[in-house]
Design a protein around this nucleic acid. Sequence first.
DNA 1: CGTGAGTTTGACCAGTTGGTCAAATCATGA
DNA 2: TCATGATTTGACCAACTGGTCAAACTCACG
Lengths: 206, 206
Amino acid sequence: MPKDRNPTRIQKKNRATILEAALEVFSTSGFRGATVDQIARAAGLSKPNLLYYFPSKEAIFTELLSGLLDTWLDPLRAIDPQGDPLEEFLAYVQRKLQMSRDFPRESRLFANEIVQGAPRMLETLSKDLKPLLEEKADLIEGWMADGKLNRTHPKHLLFSVWSLTQHYADFDVQVRTLMGDEDPFDAAPAHLEQMFRRMLTPAPKI
Amino acid sequence: MPKDRNPTRIQKKNRATILEAALEVFSTSGFRGATVDQIARAAGLSKPNLLYYFPSKEAIFTELLSGLLDTWLDPLRAIDPQGDPLEEFLAYVQRKLQMSRDFPRESRLFANEIVQGAPRMLETLSKDLKPLLEEKADLIEGWMADGKLNRTHPKHLLFSVWSLTQHYADFDVQVRTLMGDEDPFDAAPAHLEQMFRRMLTPAPKI
DNA sequence: CGTGAGTTTGACCAGTTGGTCAAATCATGA
DNA sequence: TCATGATTTGACCAACTGGTCAAACTCACG
């Protein structure tokens, strides 16, 4: 068992390789569906060798989750309270959509976990995600109070962004099956832009 | 192995019990995560007894899927080409949202399957869902051409309905964790109504 | 009743899975 | 170079899993 301090070159490389392989396997099979052997094979290591770098399957999984959550929430954190409300929000939507396009495995990893009741993430949800959501919901609430955005339920609004964007990653097979040749990500940005612009433009009711 | 024809009273009862138990277990654990023993226990039967009614775990799963798909698609089928376009569509959104509230396990069953690449559903997707989607997309397209609905990408529009509504079932734990005491389904109907009404009202661009 | 079909079960099996361990091999810096 | 710690592996294990089977039990009906 390698120590956490002073990781060797080999340790750094192999731990990274393992996490990459684990992302691939866990995101398509879920925690229970994935086997240590699959991950080891995907990483090009033997099973005992893999378990030399991580104490257990569970440990790989939780390290993956916590390691990726920060990146995953970056787009939301990046909403600037000083910017123009509507444009800030629309830019957030596009960033989030990009995440679905560029990191679909990460999205499916979380989706798998949460659909199954988030047994290994519940704490993270209330400790990390909840405060962030509330901060941004308050910000949006303020913008609405100032008449800069159309009045809506801020939390439901943010859920809407998540569901609409992550759908393209989580339900990728379905979306692609139904769209045939057309790449879903061709029209998705404009579609979501239109949707949220109409929803949020503070205007005489249409 | 009971014959399909002339099922006895006991057969009818037990097959139904098993499917109910299987829905419970599969929807929270996915196919691979669920064990036959879990399902048997949830159904109050012994494992060999359960396997007397269904030849295999796989058989239970596929029977569940195909049995539920029809119900699942009912709200979409019910869109009436003769009705008022906007109101028809908004009613569809609400029906779909009700499904998420009333049948969250069914939603998660499909979600689990599709997130993991739909290995047992791909054929169903292209054979059953695709034609239905195209029929309804064409209908919506027509309504837009007639100026009854604001112009958008019909397929992406339908994906939006699915993702927004199913999110409340599939990500139930997350949504409830983040909303605390407030029941998500209190504000969701109005939120989605507002969202799609703004999106689809054919009006001078706002 | 009694009898034959329908139902239930304990015991069992082979394959898989997460994880261990001692021994072998490799890398590195004194 | 060589000693020492880091890395790798084949063999192994106990628990679990999907599924089988013969024997026992129960039910409906003549």
